[in-house]
Design a protein around this nucleic acid. Sequence first.
DNA 1: AATGAATGAGCCTTCATTCAT
DNA 2: CATGAATGAAGGCTCATTCAT
Lengths: 207, 207, 207, 207
Amino acid sequence: MQAKTERQQAMTDVRRALVLDAARAVFEKLGIEGASIREIARAAGYTPGAIYFYYDSKEAIYGALLAESLERLNDKVAQAGTGALDPAAQLEAKASAWFDFYADNPRELDLGFYLVQGMRPRGLNATLNEQLNSRLHDALQPCEAALQALGLTGEAALRETTALFAHGVGLLLLKHTGRIRMFGQDATLLFDAYVIGLLERVRQRLI
Amino acid sequence: MQAKTERQQAMTDVRRALVLDAARAVFEKLGIEGASIREIARAAGYTPGAIYFYYDSKEAIYGALLAESLERLNDKVAQAGTGALDPAAQLEAKASAWFDFYADNPRELDLGFYLVQGMRPRGLNATLNEQLNSRLHDALQPCEAALQALGLTGEAALRETTALFAHGVGLLLLKHTGRIRMFGQDATLLFDAYVIGLLERVRQRLI
Amino acid sequence: MQAKTERQQAMTDVRRALVLDAARAVFEKLGIEGASIREIARAAGYTPGAIYFYYDSKEAIYGALLAESLERLNDKVAQAGTGALDPAAQLEAKASAWFDFYADNPRELDLGFYLVQGMRPRGLNATLNEQLNSRLHDALQPCEAALQALGLTGEAALRETTALFAHGVGLLLLKHTGRIRMFGQDATLLFDAYVIGLLERVRQRLI
Amino acid sequence: MQAKTERQQAMTDVRRALVLDAARAVFEKLGIEGASIREIARAAGYTPGAIYFYYDSKEAIYGALLAESLERLNDKVAQAGTGALDPAAQLEAKASAWFDFYADNPRELDLGFYLVQGMRPRGLNATLNEQLNSRLHDALQPCEAALQALGLTGEAALRETTALFAHGVGLLLLKHTGRIRMFGQDATLLFDAYVIGLLERVRQRLI
DNA sequence: AATGAATGAGCCTTCATTCAT
DNA sequence: CATGAATGAAGGCTCATTCAT
């Protein structure tokens, strides 16, 4: 029994990523209900049993999927508004970045918020949960920083970031569940309006 | 063929309600994934087959649950702010009514928004879906009316109601998924602040 | 508790017949698989429990249905060829009568031959079974008599009647299962040809 | 992904055959109504779920059972009368072969003719159905060929084969349902007599 | 590293039947 | 005479997971 060579480890990582890709594809196509281990294995070109070599359980896959989704979100946010100099433009760019990320990929929102009941309590242990929370926070940090740069106290910036986040999430939910049609409104327009209103209030020292 | 006496009908209704109560209890305790017919029957003190005497399918139960939840929501909203005379107080009372309803009963939000993927398309036929949408709209109508009474155009009132709704829903989601703790914020406080801010903007003719 | 008046008994009989009519209708429309007590009750305008007042079990209904079917068969056979004087014409008329009866009502054949596995052993007790056998024999008796009138011994007539019956049944089965299409043949034509051939053999003293 | 070794494939096939054997045994003992997946699994020493590893559905098992039955029938027919030189002896041998096959295995007849209503339309897709029809035809082809060899036109041979088949099937049905006892006749004797009569008619150019 | 085989628990639903009222 | 209520058993099928090979 020899230790695993670097090369072997690298191969394992590649295959693990392949399984995750398959899981994401299945998840996107069939939703959480259709995303069985069978289906994921099929998409990955494996038999169901093989999946357990890479992930301990279905929920571990879910956790990894979520973690990876948050990385991509952070990438998107990091890339956004790099050219913008003033904080206001920064805020708009960063906020739009995460909003659009979820607007374009509804399933990632499901993932990101544990919307799926059955998944909530199990599987995601406290440590992982905190890591994920932290990465989500990271994605919002640029907005918070921009608000501080615009003159808000740390406390106020955090509060407004939370509210901004909630507003976006609410709109996304209304959008994805089709409820927003009931009001004849458009989620993106409303989100942009909220950001503009927020900047206006900041400018007028109302916050 | 004898006609069903009123008394018999009443008892049937009671039992049907009992099944629905059991379903709600199971749903609250186990989430939608654990809410099997078996479990609902067990909670109601029945064998699984008996459930079908009262509801045609699992999804019919889901629909009834949702319908009933919306009725209670509307009741709450109708009762709120009955003493308030000015529209601003009306808005605050009505908005708080529905927000608190969901803040107090997390699972009703799941129910109300079809957060559960698997349930979305099936079972809820178009007619029922429209009815439910309509009842949800009813619960928000008082807010919309109050905004109009405060001077907003119909269009603006609708837009702001949508935004208000989204804001609340977002906060509720953050609250129920525990994500709001990450920000060290309180959902209810933030919601109240949003309502106050909204009234302020209305007063200043910013909308 | 008074004895049942004649009138009451008559009413009961009428209702029992009504249930049987419903059963036949259901049986014809849905086949043996769909013919549940529920469905029969629905067709009869009763609740399932009421059925058991008239029949002890589902299989009792089946037995009654079969008995009644055989009565109708015998009626048809009795009416056939009443004008025919010579035995040959008699044979043709009587044989066609029962063949056509089943050709026109495929389900009665199922009924008549216990084609349905699940029903075979239970329900039909020996006495009833013998009665039914006897009535079936009755329907064939005219053919047997005609053959004897044509000069066959009792033994030969019985043998030929059996063969005739088997031939018809086989053709009916091929017809009802669609297998006859495979041969591009027509069941009725073949049956008629068989009868003619039989008469020919009788005439030529080949039997 | 390693390829399945021949040995592994062979073992899988053996187990699949084992399941089919179990299914046949259950089918023979309990009839089609009692032939549940649970029961088949029990007979095969499996849990119900395991059955689905070998067959996609209950009806797939039914189809396989039928296909295999027809193969055995064809084997029997192919082996019969190999020593016989003249067409008349061929006809007798081949006809007896298939008649005896079903006389000895009543349930195979049920299977072969879709006697069971519930099974007819579903599961057996058109392609399979045609294959099965074709194999059934194959079993009768030698009889048809013998008749042609005896001088019948193609058309007449087909007609007589159909009639022969129907006659046999009818007798088998009378035998298996016990109805033939009512006439005090023996199915095999009658069948043989029919074949002899057929040959006689052919010889005398009556057909 | 991966397969093929299998488990056991669970899913929703249907059914014939019983029985108090 | 008939209902409404309920049972208990069974139906086909799917699933996450385990494990010898």
